[in-house]
Design a protein around this nucleic acid. Structure first.
Lengths: 210, 210
DNA sequence: TAGATTGTTAATCGATTAACAATC
DNA sequence: TAGATTGTTAATCGATTAACAATC
């Protein structure tokens, strides 16, 4: 397996979505051109991406769809579930807890946490809400790798400082805060307001260009 | 205003979050180095970004925080609200409807839509749920620009085909589908499963490097 | 064999970073 | 004035795209 670029890794889930959507067809092979057309990228990019993660096509035929799908699933780690907790049992936290698909794709939700006494002991989609004071215990007992932060911005940094002591190495951050963490911690920012602001600006620019 | 790169636009909301978080300090000015340290990027990148959107600093002093904040707000269009509808009143759609911050940042939610008769006429955070058949009427009456898709994947494409006839030019797509749209339509993909798969892979790679 | 499609090397494009003059 | 910090040009790095040989 060659060096895989950041941009390639970001595209793999999209390739996966695309081929899942055409599985019902009787088609057994697809070409890089077919994928590149659907995704609005260059066909050379598709071949480079697939080649870099070790997918081989056949000249004149293309890529075997079933093989491709399996390859993506192994690459993306569907069968190596990661344990995660959600911190903040508000609307978004609860919606994520109820999102059925996560499990299938390897995200195993262990518990929710909140400081509101009214929420403690609620069970959301089979996942229990605990008081924040239980985080350490539950992280230790369950080998939790990922913390999903759905907290108000004024609480996100201090909770982060706490949880990084408990072996969590990945933070999926939905709070509108730029977290300060040691270099060993990986943070993925998913603040929806920031995303809205970016998409809205890009839409505006596109509109003016046309 | 010079040419603004895609990467710059993606960083502006983060700059904004950072300066909002230090507003309480008495500090009046900040340096590009201060911002670059917090964000983990090069200070030259900060100066280029700010310069490209027309923010001017002063040698030896840095950038005026209040001016910077105002500049970002104008650039990001906080005061030019955009009307949007949410299609799919499931857990995620409802959580977004309840997210109080959107309004403040210029996202004006007009209505929710669903096909489930039990959900029709519910009011979520002041926003009413309508039958899908009402989309055309409501889009026309309210100058709706943005559609937020929180639908199962098998419905997303057909709804998309419908709504692009009603003057919607921007789609914020939470469904795990690569939508086909005319070039005039701007699509921002926010599928949370894809994001999880990408972040999980990047975390794994980072772990192996250390 | 001829033609379609892969896979890779080279060229281009865009973004980041280094170097440094301008300036308050 | 000396020093810190901006703002910009040039160099580097990484990603995309073009060109094309390999191959089924």
């Amino acid at each position: 397996m060659k060096n895989i670029s950041l941009q390639t890794i970001k595209r793999i889930p999209t390739y996966y979505n695309v081929i899942c959507n055409i599985l019902s067809n009787k088609q057994k092979f697809l070409s890089s051109n077919f994928l590149s057309d659907l995704m609005g990228i260059d066909d050379t990019t598709v071949r480079k991406d697939l080649s870099s993660i070790g997918c081989n096509g056949r000249p004149k035929q293309g890529y075997n769809i079933i093989e491709l799908k399996k390859h993506f699933e192994i690459f993306l780690g569907f069968n190596q579930p990661k344990n995660a907790i959600i911190i903040g049992a508000g609307n978004l936290g609860c919606a994520l807890a109820k999102y059925e698909k996560f499990k299938k794709y390897g995200l195993n939700l262990i518990a929710l946490f909140d400081k509101d006494p009214h929420k403690i002991d609620l069970v959301i989609n089979g996942i229990k809400v605990y008081n924040l004071s239980k985080i350490q215990e539950i992280c230790k007992d369950n080998n939790v790798e990922i913390a999903i932060l759905t907290l108000p911005e004024d609480e996100a940094q201090s909770i982060t400082n706490t949880i990084i002591k408990y072996n969590i190495n990945t933070i999926w951050n939905f709070s509108p805060v730029n977290l300060s963490v040691p270099t060993s911690i990986f943070v993925w920012n998913q603040d929806l307001v920031s995303n809205f602001l970016t998409l809205s600006k890009l839409a505006e620019i596109k509109k003016h260009k046309i």
